[in-house]
Design a protein around this nucleic acid. Structure first.
Lengths: 213, 213
DNA sequence: GACGGTATTCTTACGGCGTAAGGCACGTCA
DNA sequence: TGACGTGCCTTACGCCGTAAGAATACCGTC
């Protein structure tokens, strides 16, 4: 530490500042780089200092996830049909995840039920119930949508992560349809997401109102 | 090592045996327990010995994922409508993931395009194209389904993982619909999966054949 | 202004991790 | 018989998370 601070002099650390530094480190160098020592170094401080603001590494990762989901609220106010509401929700969540791709695997090990998160869910449930869904069905819909978005984003990120060394299909003749599809398909991952999201929402609608009158 | 083996005596290690031991360790004690030393100990061997069969930790984790997806093939032969085919695929994948819950987070960081995996995908694509889907659309469907299953399973596992210490909704009055839904909803995770899967498949069908004739 | 308590920071240290480098014994084949 | 490759072990290095404790600045009280 080459800072001009003496032994007991405050460095002005807060839980928020630590989580922010951790987030930035993860975004810049990936999850394995997120160590107590590296975060502390980025803040001009020794590793053990962090423990006065955060109980341990697990709590730190929890906090990072918490910060991530806090950024996943739709900017538009809840209006329009329940489909539009859900579509906004899905887009907001997807955008938040894609903005911090290295953090996405963290969500697979951690539950993210913060108060703010529950507020957004309650909003969605209200919209759905007003549209005639029963509360349990509405919860099914919201949970399903959340898992769907997470899965789509994860698959997208994992597909283009490393330089394809493991499998790297060697024989186009063995899987002709696959190769044709890859060759002629839309290369934008957005299109696939929109397609699948539309299908899921259409499916919810179909299950909700059995016939189109 | 208190085994009765002398210095240069073979222990009969193979890549398969190592991966199996790693899988069993992960199932029994979770992912953090999967270390080179622990795996080696389980096999009655020193850690460095593993490096004669596996290049390193990353390759080991890749191998574990490979083993997992290899178990994700449907047992039934591909028959029936494309919806039934996809449903079988989804159930097989979900069953494989649920059988090794601790490995699911690994899939978030690793792509799993083995030859065997591509075979299953090619099968699905063939069925879909025979039903009138274009190859790119069929690929969209299969990818979307895969991501969907992964997301659903991950969410299910994460929801019931630890003892709910982080959020643990403190005020039922603040989120009345959420609590009513939890109280009166179906507690079986299977039901939610079936509901969402049906919705997604229905959505695919709706996008495929615009009108129900 | 002096003073005591508290909050914040740093130092040191331990065990575990992945793995690089090199040594030793066995099986095989010339 | 002897040389050699293969499979295994030993040692060692630099990371990691974090427990224990010493040192110092800050702050409310007088």
């Amino acid at each position: 530490m080459a800072t001009g601070r003496k032994r007991g002099q405050r460095a002005g650390l807060t839980r928020e500042a630590i989580l922010l530094a951790a987030l930035e480190l993860a975004d810049r160098e990936g999850l394995p780089a997120v160590s107590m020592r590296r975060i502390a170094a980025a803040l001009g401080v020794e590793a053990m200092t962090l423990y006065h603001h955060i109980p341990g590494k697990e709590a730190l990762l929890d906090g990072m996830v918490e910060q991530l989901v806090a950024r996943a609220q739709p900017h538009r106010p809840p209006s329009g049909t329940w489909q539009e509401h859900l579509r906004d929700l899905a887009h907001a969540l997807r955008a938040a995840l894609l903005a911090h791709p290295h953090l996405v695997p963290l969500l697979a090990t951690r539950r993210a039920t913060t108060a703010r998160n529950l507020d957004a869910m309650e909003n969605a449930l209200r919209t759905l119930c007003a549209a005639g869904f029963t509360p349990p069905r509405a919860l099914d819909v919201v949970y399903s949508l959340t898992g769907f978005v997470f899965g789509q984003v994860t698959l997208t990120l994992a597909a283009g992560s490393v330089g394809d060394p493991p499998g790297a299909e060697p024989d186009p003749a063995a899987h002709p349809l696959f190769h044709e599809a890859v060759r002629t398909g839309d290369p934008a991952p957005d299109a696939r997401f929109e397609f699948a999201l539309a299908a899921l929402l259409a499916g919810f609608a179909a299950g909700h109102e059995p016939g189109p009158a």
